[in-house]
Amino acid sequence: MLTLGTDEFAKYPFLADAGAYLKDKGFTLEQFGSDPDLRPSVDKALHRIEASTDNTNYHSELEDGMTTKSYSLEFEVFSFVIAIALIKLSRMPTLVRRFALAEAKRAESHLKTDLRKAQKQSEIDLIKKIIFELSGIEIDKPNEDFFTISVTDYLTESASFNEKEWKLINHHVENGKVFLNSKKIIRLLRKKIDVYITTKINKIRVPEMIPGFEAKVDNLISLGKKYTPVFVSTGEYPPCIKHAIEVLEKGENLTHAGRFMLATFLLSKGQSVQQVAPLFKNAPDYNERVTLYQLNNLAGNSGNTTQYSCPSCQKLQSQNLCFATSDCANIISPMQFGRKKA
């Protein structure tokens, strides 16, 4: 386990044993259910969960990434531990998924700043250790402006990025190392950080119901249901579409290209925007307004009135979205799946 400073513990509470911190401070989880003096920490935890579900800002106690107030650390760590206890008690996977994603985004933002600011060797060493713990990837800082990672780590992590700027050729490469600025290095590791936090939260066992938390847990269950989609499946979807639906069902993140494929397929099959929209409810970054706007655009109801068509099998293969089975033989587009000659 990493030895963290106060600021780091508050920023990255998932890296340390936050539960042990609670105990060290002389508290038990049960006390938070009944002690009115501890109510602010519970409210903070609920705020933390709600902010993660509707993608709004979590108002942290940190100022510029630092625990400037005497109570900041306790407040941050307590609210983190209680938030996890509450979402675990709700047994709503969608809440876990959204909470983990929000924490990952927060961590990403702190890491970017910490990397940029790190000047002293001790600061650099600590941030290197944090990144290694989160991603299993070693970084180095050979000069003022750049960080380096190994060519193989870079190629592995950037493989899912399609933009030209992420091609290896568009980076300085020397002696087996790729040179990146702090922003790029953190963007590159986003998925790993997300997986680390999700895995860590998933591993925590569900506690016994804490007296005083019952109503709050019921509210969270209602909140979770709001974001749990109703799935439509005719059983005739091609495997790529089934896979995309499964990903959403599990509350996992479906790539932009995957969402485009799913939406254009269903819209082209004659489903309405209103029928398709609920499918995306479970996406970790679901926003009803944005989803409807994008679906209307794809359907040609707004914007330039062009109706987008479903990508070809070849395109989907290049995007790692193809999961062809023998039933896909001789088709060149998911739209042709299931068609048989008379």
């Binding site: 060519v151 193989t152 700027e165 091609k167 290896l168 050729i169 568009n170 980076h171 490469v173």
Partner: peptide, 18 residues
């Protein structure tokens, strides 16, 4: 990943900003 590496070796996919 190997495809990206071949692009690097062949000087393919480079953008002016680089």
């Amino acid at each position: 990943e190997r495809s990206d590496l071949t692009g690097y070796i062949m000087f393919k996919g480079v953008v002016p900003e680089t």
